[in-house]
Design a protein around this nucleic acid. Sequence first.
DNA 1: TTGACTTCGTGAACATTGTTCATACAACAG
DNA 2: CTGTTGTATGAACAATGTTCACGAAGTCAA
Lengths: 213, 213
Amino acid sequence: MALDKEEMSEKVLAIAEALLNEGGAANLKARTIAEQAGISVGSVYNLFADLDEVHRAVNMRLLDRLGAAGIAAMADLERQGVTDVRHRILAMAAAYVRFVEAHPGSWPAVLAFNRRRATRPGPDAYDALLDELFGIVAGVLKAGDFDLDDERRALAARTLWSSVHGIVTSGYVANSDSRQAEEIWRQVELLVGVFVKGLEHGGAFEHAETKPQ
Amino acid sequence: MALDKEEMSEKVLAIAEALLNEGGAANLKARTIAEQAGISVGSVYNLFADLDEVHRAVNMRLLDRLGAAGIAAMADLERQGVTDVRHRILAMAAAYVRFVEAHPGSWPAVLAFNRRRATRPGPDAYDALLDELFGIVAGVLKAGDFDLDDERRALAARTLWSSVHGIVTSGYVANSDSRQAEEIWRQVELLVGVFVKGLEHGGAFEHAETKPQ
DNA sequence: TTGACTTCGTGAACATTGTTCATACAACAG
DNA sequence: CTGTTGTATGAACAATGTTCACGAAGTCAA
């Protein structure tokens, strides 16, 4: 009946995610985890090096699920035969917004998480997951008949992602009323509309300048 | 020679800002502040209720300075007779990017700061400062000859702000190379270009739908 | 079976930190 | 001089991250 080491890690991560969701990073305490998991404090440190690693693992799980939600949204569009680029992008953005709304406490923790103490080598599993998400958005853009080479399309995908991300998090910093959700969605609609129109009219790469000052 | 209560508060805030800039929110310790300010721990708590209030005060100072930088950028444009909307928006964005780059440690702390423990009443000084920043952007948009009423222009301003904000912070989450700065600026250029083109062609408010699902 | 070795759980113990509070001191009013 | 008021102080308390010596339980060889 005793849980496997792997199973116990899963249990700890599930508890950690719940704690993060309730009270943010400050609520992730070793003793609380131990108590809720029915093990001792030391055992937590046998499974993970420190709380940072627990936090990192939870974040990876969340990013993984976000990717899955994006892919699922893509599949839905495919099945429904939706080809309009604007609709597809909006659907992707909606998936993102829904995901963030479903994790009100832990998502800010994901974003605020500081991985400056990570190992030296550049791209880690974190970046790999983010690249995967970028790839999904780039795939949607490819369906549009914009005149973009791969590099520019990738840049556009990253820009679109970052912008939606900024809208969602900015909205979430403020007091989250029910009106806040409406405001977020209005901004997303405006952004996507303007983005598609802008790309159609070639407004993206007309001016190549360097950053002022 | 002894410092005024007001002066000592200033000194504490300056120290706190330096600490935040070096090591983020986790580096803001009561004892460190006390030591560097040449006072005792208890005295810090005589000046501020707790460390949260210190953090909040530092954030307000930063937001204030950001607003000042934005206004200064506006004044520069005015003096140089720049009227092109795209250029003006880019200049504002550049001011924002420069400001964030100048505060690599404390800016993430500003964004991650959780003010859920704030007093009940809705709009506080925080929101007032943010509204001021929105107002500046909206003013720049007003100079453009887009066909926007006040409400839509305000929405566009908030969207633009949130998007730039997202680009900058997304870029900053990753390892901050020198290439990262270039990537951020490319995204900002693309966003602004697409935004202006999109608004010119009326792509913003053509489709009025409700959020899917 | 016995003994050695490995693995892992345990919780006491330590270091760090936020926060409080009784005490002491300094300035000033009457 | 006495009382009051405001402030500085640092010891003390509680919460928390992390370590570690101890021991239990399993594994394997002789």
